[in-house]
């Protein structure tokens, strides 16, 4: 199912600190959208507002609207728990549950949805692990701890865990920053494959990665430390990296700043 995300007038706070101000953008369905920008520009914050994970931090709050196929995620009566079941997330550091086996990790979300039937779970585990390009590496040790895998495998396990609940959108917060180049390549291949089923938003520090995997790119920046981050430019990835309209974008993608 294809899902468009429309963000209008989004402002996010940590307590009194305004982290990011007045973001407007539209994320197309079955596309990969990359958020790039210097540290502290609020790109991760914006990402976390898309599945209401921002407000998990104490004192954090959001103004503005995020429409998921026309429905406001922050509307009255919207349960953040339901939002997060629709919009999955993969974090910067691989975070499989250490007390669970590979199998249990993949079905963690399904169990929350009340799915108990063994046959169905088995099927979804294989499907999700195949979807995350991990099945062949772990099929013989599904009952071993998930934390015993390599960093790259752990991250793909986390992706499998996220897609097992069949979300419509997959958010990735610098998913490769803790990984070596080969694992990074594996994840990038995976992103290319996943975009046929999911709307993907990825935050990355790596501009080559953004240009390799994404269809659209949003460049965030901030004037100086302490100022809120802002969306500077949002366009097709090819345009952002070859012929950006903003001077600051050009400076950033060409490596002269940030």
């Amino acid at each position: 199912m294809a899902t468009r995300i429309e963000v209008t007038g989004l402002t996010a706070y940590y307590g009194k600190f305004k982290a990011v101000s007045d973001v407007n953008l539209t994320i197309e369905p079955k596309n990969v959208t990359a958020f790039i920008g210097p540290s502290g520009c609020g790109k991760s914050t914006v990402l976390r507002t898309l599945n209401r994970m921002h407000e998990v931090l104490p004192g954090a709050r959001v103004e503005g609207r995020v429409l998921l196929d026309g429905e406001d995620l922050y509307g009255a009566g919207m349960d953040p728990v339901n939002v997060r079941r629709t919009v999955g997330m993969v974090f910067q550091r691989p975070n499989p549950f250490p007390t669970m086996s590979i199998y249990e990790n993949v079905i963690a979300g399904l169990k929350l949805n009340g799915i108990r039937k063994k046959a169905l779970l088995d099927e979804r585990v294989e499907e999700s692990l195949r979807g995350a390009n991990l099945w062949d590496e772990v099929k013989d040790r599904l009952n071993r701890p998930g934390a015993g895998l390599s960093g790259g495998q752990q991250q793909r396990l986390c992706i499998a865990r996220a897609i097992a609940v069949e979300p419509q959108v997959l958010l990735m917060d610098e998913p490769c920053s803790a990984l070596d180049p080969i694992s990074t390549l594996a994840i990038e291949d995976l992103i290319n494959k996943l975009k046929s089923s999911f709307t993907i938003v990825i935050v990355t520090h790596n501009m080559q990665q953004a240009s390799r995997v994404s269809d659209a790119t949003a460049f965030f920046s901030l004037e100086k430390t302490g100022d809120p981050g802002r969306l500077v430019e949002f366009d097709k990835t090819s345009k952002i990296f070859t012929n950006p309209s903003e001077k600051r974008t050009e400076d950033y993608v060409s490596g002269r700043f940030g």
């Binding site: 997060r84 079941r85 999955g88 499989p96 963690a108 929350l112």
Partner: peptide, 10 residues
Amino acid sequence: AHREAALALG
């Protein structure tokens, strides 16, 4: 990270 992993799964 573990708490957020659980929350992000809904």
